[in-house]
């Protein structure tokens, strides 16, 4: 045990700074995917509740497909699959593929979250808005969505935590984030256990504040009812 910890003491100075820089890559990746997923999710949710059967069908198919596959498969399809077709503009870098892949799948997850937020609101709200002469679009903008976003905050926070952990999978397509760096240092120093435990600790430090926030949001929502 002592020898185990001793290795950390020896290498702390060289490992930790590198891993911390990689953490920034992870957080960046997470943030950009989150933004993409939120944008797609909002569109998907609005399509899902629209009066057009075609739009509803497209949204349903999108969600089923994106949620029916592992994130790894989506990443591989984008990075290796599209990249292997020989078309220049489809040759994404691993970073781009990572954001695209996580964002597309996240869009399906958040789409369902946003939809349940919208549907949780009483039908009466929509009818009151329509009776006052608002178009469905105006009603969405000023009455439904402003209420729905508060309801969806806890599941969105939970999604964000999951997203942070999913960035690790992007190491498999060599996207620049924490797991990849840990793997590289582990192979060059022949110390896999030390590095992966260190990586786990860093992930935990990054996700813990988020999970506190998520829990507080859940409590606040439960109280408000």
């Amino acid at each position: 045990m002592i020898e185990f910890l001793d290795v950390y003491r020896q290498h702390f100075g060289e490992w930790v700074p590198e891993l911390l820089i990689a953490c920034i890559g992870t957080l960046e990746l997470m943030a950009l995917s989150f933004v993409l997923a939120s944008a797609i999710g909002l569109v998907v949710a609005l399509m899902r509740v629209s009066r057009s059967r075609l739009l509803r069908a497209v949204a349903i198919v999108y969600v089923e497909v994106m949620r029916g596959m592992p994130a790894l498969v989506i990443l591989f399809l984008i990075y290796f699959g599209l990249g292997g077709l020989g078309v220049d503009w489809l040759k994404f870098t691993s970073y781009e593929a990572a954001i695209l892949g996580l964002g597309l799948q996240g869009g399906a997850v958040l789409g369902e979250v946003f939809r349940s937020g919208i549907e949780a609101l009483h039908l009466g709200q929509m009818e009151a808005a329509l009776s006052l002469g608002m178009t469905p679009a105006t009603a969405m903008r000023w009455i439904i969505l402003p209420q729905a976003w508060r309801i969806v905050l806890p599941p969105v926070a939970n999604y964000a935590i999951g997203l942070l952990k999913d960035t690790a999978v992007c190491a498999i397509i060599a996207a620049p984030e924490l797991m990849l760096r840990a793997k590289d240092i582990a192979s060059s120093s022949f110390r896999p256990m030390h590095l992966f435990v260190l990586a786990a600790i860093l992930y935990f430090i990054m996700s813990y504040p988020l999970s506190i926030v998520a829990r507080r949001l859940e409590a606040r929502l439960a109280r408000g009812r």
């Binding site: 009466g124 709200q125 009151a128 009776s131 006052l132 002469g133 178009t135 105006t138 009455i143």
Partner: peptide
């Protein structure tokens, strides 16, 4: 339709305030 509804006032049984 919205324009027509703006000229008709509807008061609901369950108020439906925002």
């Amino acid at each position: 339709l919205a324009k027509e509804r703006a000229e008709i006032g509807f008061v609901f049984q369950r108020f439906n305030l925002f």
